[in-house]
């Protein structure tokens, strides 16, 4: 049985194809065009990778901010159940999921059966999200990918006090002008993000195992420091962590199709 899951986030669109419970292909793309078109493009790409065509897909589920704009999806689902489902499918012992994406932080507490018990999201500010890291990288003329390894070299992270994306960006620029070492600034930015993530996720009560997902889970420095801050060992998934929501959607698609 072939099913598909889509996750149309605010900055990236993801598709996952499952065949009999195995991931056979996936696709991630930045959202620049209309969501409907992006959804079709990533589906086509994922299908062609797996040597399949759209007729082979018996059921598909969409999730994410643009979930209602995937015309061919059989069902659209909210983010939290898909995230919970995907994390649990990848790491069955997961009880807490911390998802840090382009513009959102979501911390979920789930029980053994995978039911969402409580969740918390970032307040109305994109600080401590992927977009924030991108802004900092742009301001410092660095590549997003090199931030984590740069931060790891710092011995004295700079103090970033701003709690707001816009202010933090200007604070970073001020620090550069004051001649603070770039590495220490980058490390300071990471620390400030970790404090925010710890507060957002700590609110729901941390229960192990803790899994971090979303694009920011690729940043080892963030994962490591957050674990230290929360005093837990944070697990990451062995697929691209941005795909977890789409995987959850695909798993739900499989359940629906099997039940039908």
């Amino acid at each position: 049985m072939i099913v598909a899951g889509f996750d149309l986030g605010t900055l990236a669109a993801k598709a996952v194809i499952l065949r009999d419970g195995e991931i056979v292909s996936s696709e991630i793309r930045g959202i620049k065009a209309v969501p409907e078109k992006v959804a079709q493009d990533i589906l086509d790409k994922a299908l062609s990778q797996a040597g399949l065509s759209q007729e082979d897909v018996v059921y598909s589920v969409s999730t994410g901010w643009g979930r209602k704009r995937v015309p061919f999806a059989n069902l659209d689902m909210a983010d939290m159940p898909c995230l919970a489902k995907g994390a649990k499918w990848l790491i069955p012992s997961a009880r807490t999921v911390i998802d840090v994406g382009g513009q959102s932080i979501r911390a979920l507490s789930i029980n053994e059966a995978g039911k969402v018990l409580e969740y918390n999201t970032n307040d109305k500010c994109a600080a401590a999200t992927g977009r924030f890291l991108e802004l900092v990288a742009e301001a410092l003329e660095l590549k997003l990918e090199e931030l984590a390894s740069l931060a790891a070299q710092s011995k004295e992270p700079a103090k970033i006090s701003s709690q707001c994306c816009v202010f933090a960006e200007s604070e970073v620029v001020t620090l550069v002008n004051e001649g603070i070492n770039l590495i220490d600034i980058v490390a300071g930015v990471h620390d400030s993000i970790v404090r925010r993530l710890a507060a957002t996720s700590g609110t729901i009560g941390i229960v192990e195992d803790v899994v971090m997902t979303g694009g920011c889970a690729k940043n080892e420095r963030l994962v490591g420091s957050l674990g230290k801050q929360l005093k837990v060992d944070i697990k990451t998934v062995d697929v691209d962590p941005q795909l977890v929501g789409a995987i959850g959607a695909a798993v739900i698609a499989q359940e629906k199709a099997s039940a039908a």
């Binding site: 970790v194 404090r195 925010r196 507060a199 700590g202």
Partner: peptide
């Protein structure tokens, strides 16, 4: 030096 634990009880917003 920071309030990440306290912010889970009192809130920063």
């Amino acid at each position: 030096v920071g309030t990440s634990l306290a912010d889970t009880w009192l809130t920063r917003i």
